[in-house]
Simulated assay, not measured.
Amino acid sequence: MTLEVEALAAAYGPAPALADVALSVGEGEVVTLLGRNGMGKTTTVRAIMGLLPSVGGRVTGGRLAFGGAALGGRPPHAVARLGLGLVPEGRQVFPTLSVRENLVATARPGPWDLRAVYGLFPRLEERAANLGRNLSGGEQQMLAVGRALMTNPRLLILDEATEGLAPLVRAEIWACLERLKREGQSILLIDKNLSHVLRLADRHVILEKGRTVWSGDSAALAAAPELRERFLHV
């Protein structure tokens, strides 16, 4: 299954947010979406997942497809049924549901079940009866990843997967992503930790003011300090 984004444009009300975003994620690939804050990364993810209308936005042009099926105009639940799983920015776990209830709420049949998720994140099994609102930030992030995996996605999308987490929890999330890559999981990742994404990802896409301004592999990005300085450093 391949995600294809071509000439994507989007707006919030009258204000343009994306002008020309292009990216793709192939079977078993890990691709990162990079750029400074406010450059359109989260808006791109929302457009892919059909979430823009819920925050007052809309797709105004371009093409979105997954496995040959057009994504444009589909509501989020229909996009998810095609095999796209999202770990959203800010985690957004269900605060009044238990850990177990969060995990099974959107589960679909496949290899990722409760046992597999608890094996990946043993802390979640220890906290299975606790409400989402009573978890630490790191535990909520584990739960958000586990919940997305329980949908058994063909493509896993993570928006700021390690932002604001303690070092030990960040390490656990990176170890999880490395395992998923080894197992052939397709991943689209937004994260600011360049040292990790350079090791993990196959390719990178940089956004600047709602446009794709560069794409290439880790070797090319590592060899271009002027590119990182221009588009990624604050």
Rank of each mutant, 00 (worst) to 15 (best):
A201F: 03
D217S: 06
L18T: 15
Q185E: 09
F231H: 04
E160M: 03
I187H: 05
M1P: 11
L33G: 03
E27H: 09
E125V: 14
T60S: 05
G28R: 00
G57D: 08
G73W: 05
G72P: 15
I187C: 03
E89N: 04
C176Q: 12
Y118A: 06
T162W: 12
A222E: 13
L232P: 10
A161L: 15
A47Y: 03
I206L: 02
L103Y: 08
E163V: 12
L97S: 09
R228C: 08
N102Y: 08
A222W: 04
T32A: 02
A224N: 13
E126R: 03
P76M: 00
R91K: 11
E27K: 03
V145Y: 06
V205A: 01
T32V: 03
S98F: 07
V145R: 05
E160G: 09
L120Q: 15
V213M: 01
G85S: 07
V55L: 09
I187E: 06
V205K: 01
R115A: 15
K209S: 15
G184R: 02
L232K: 01
G38P: 01
R147G: 06
P88I: 06
L227Q: 02
G56M: 08
R123L: 14
V205D: 01
K181Q: 11
L103M: 08
T32E: 09
L165Y: 14
A224D: 09
L158F: 02
V145L: 11
G40W: 12
E183S: 01
H204E: 07
G38F: 14
L232H: 02
V79L: 08
R127A: 14
K41D: 13
L149V: 08
V59G: 13
E126W: 11
A201I: 11
G68S: 09
T151P: 00
L8W: 06
A80E: 01
Q141Y: 04
R81C: 11
F66A: 01
V55M: 05
L177M: 12
D20C: 03
C176G: 08
V197H: 01
P88L: 13
A78P: 13
M49N: 02
A175V: 06
V5Q: 09
L177N: 11
L135F: 13
I206Q: 11
W214G: 08
M39G: 07
V55N: 02
L64D: 05
L86Q: 12
T60N: 08
A9R: 12
V55P: 03
R154F: 13
H204P: 05
A116P: 09
L120N: 13
L71W: 03
L143I: 09
E89H: 10
G67M: 07
S54T: 14
F66M: 02
V169I: 15
G137Q: 12
D202N: 02
T44E: 05
V99S: 01
L143M: 07
R228L: 06
E178P: 11
C176A: 14
M49P: 00
G216D: 14
N102F: 03
K192I: 10
K41P: 05
E6Q: 12
I190T: 09
F66H: 00
R127D: 10
P225W: 03
M1G: 05
G68Q: 02
I173F: 06
L207K: 04
Y12A: 02
L3D: 01
L158K: 00
E6P: 15
T212L: 08
G83W: 01
D159P: 13
L82G: 02
P225G: 00
I190Y: 07
A11F: 06
